[in-house]
Amino acid sequence: MALLYRTELKPSKLELIEAWLPGRPWFEGPAGAGLERVAAYRFDDPAGEVGLETMLVRFGTGPVHQVPLTYRGAPLDGARDRLIGTMEHGVLGRRWVYDALGDPVYLAALAGAFAGVPQAEEFFEVDGRREVRAATMAITGSGAIPEGTTATVVRRLGAAAPPAGATLTGTWAGRPDPVLLAYAN
């Protein structure tokens, strides 16, 4: 379960991604054309300490990029090269935002998703009760991956055929056919 807050983020998640994404070697597209959020999914951190969100974003009419993020209340040791930036959260205070592929909490949750652990349900607390926020996409894992197997997250989404082995696919508004998000080899 992901408890979300209706609050201001400075800078916003999209502003952080917009500044960071064009510098990645796997980026393709018209940077500066206005970054938009296409869809997103979340995982649960069993300890409840780390926010785990994967955003699908696009500049203008460019390709959709998958950006896994973790949000932490303190810096992650040994992950300075994965730091996207910091933001001020109106409720939680300063948050360190990381490229999640360098965060062990995200990688454990990703392995669970391959095995069919569902994405986190998202809730807002409103007047002392929790209201569900509708998911913007659905993910499906094809099977557990053996320990020691490498999982590859597809950064620039396309029409690539899934390789042999376990996969994680997703669908969202405008993309009803499953799109490969990650695979294990």
Rank of each mutant, 00 (worst) to 15 (best):
Y98I: 07
A39P: 03
V126G: 04
L56Y: 03
G48L: 00
V97R: 08
G128D: 02
P104G: 06
G34R: 14
A111D: 08
A108Q: 11
L92G: 06
E49A: 15
R37H: 15
V38Q: 07
P75R: 08
E28C: 14
R42A: 12
D44G: 13
A120R: 06
P68E: 05
E121T: 14
V105R: 03
L16T: 01
G51K: 04
D103H: 08
L56G: 03
G90F: 01
A40F: 11
I17H: 02
L101H: 05
A111Y: 02
D45C: 02
L83Y: 07
V126P: 01
V91H: 09
V132L: 15
R72E: 08
D45R: 07
R80Y: 11
R42H: 13
R58A: 14
A19T: 11
A47E: 15
P22K: 01
W26T: 14
Y98V: 01
V91C: 01
L83S: 00
A19R: 13
A100W: 06
P63N: 11
D44T: 14
V64C: 03
E36T: 13
H65S: 14
R72I: 07
L76R: 08
T61G: 12
D127G: 11
L21H: 01
A47V: 11
R80M: 12
G85I: 06
D99F: 06
R72M: 07
E15V: 10
R129I: 14
V91M: 12
D45Y: 06
G78R: 03
P75A: 13
G93P: 00
T54E: 09
G85S: 09
L56D: 00
A74D: 08
L101E: 11
V97K: 02
A39M: 10
E15K: 08
F43Y: 12
L110P: 05
F124M: 12
R42E: 10
W26S: 13
R42Y: 12
V126A: 15
L16D: 09
V50Q: 04
R129P: 01
A109M: 03
V50S: 04
L35Y: 01
G112F: 00
V67S: 08
V105T: 07
E15L: 07
A40Q: 12
A74R: 13
G78P: 01
P63S: 13
A115N: 00
F59S: 06
R129D: 14
R130H: 15
L76T: 03
L56A: 09
A108F: 05
R95H: 01
L56C: 06
R37Y: 12
P68S: 10
G60N: 13
P25T: 10
G90K: 03
A19V: 09
L101S: 02
G34Q: 14
W96I: 00
G51S: 10
I84E: 05
K13T: 08
V57S: 08
G102R: 07
T86H: 00
F123D: 03
Q119D: 12
A40P: 07
G78M: 07
L107A: 10
F123Y: 15
A79E: 06
P68L: 10
A113W: 02
G62R: 09
Y98D: 08
R95M: 00
E36N: 15
G93K: 05
E122K: 03
L35A: 05
E131G: 15
L56T: 06
V57I: 12
D99N: 00
V50G: 03
R82N: 11
R72V: 01
L76Q: 13
G48Q: 02
A120D: 04
V91E: 11
P46V: 00
Q66N: 09
P75L: 03
E53W: 09
H65F: 12
F43Q: 09
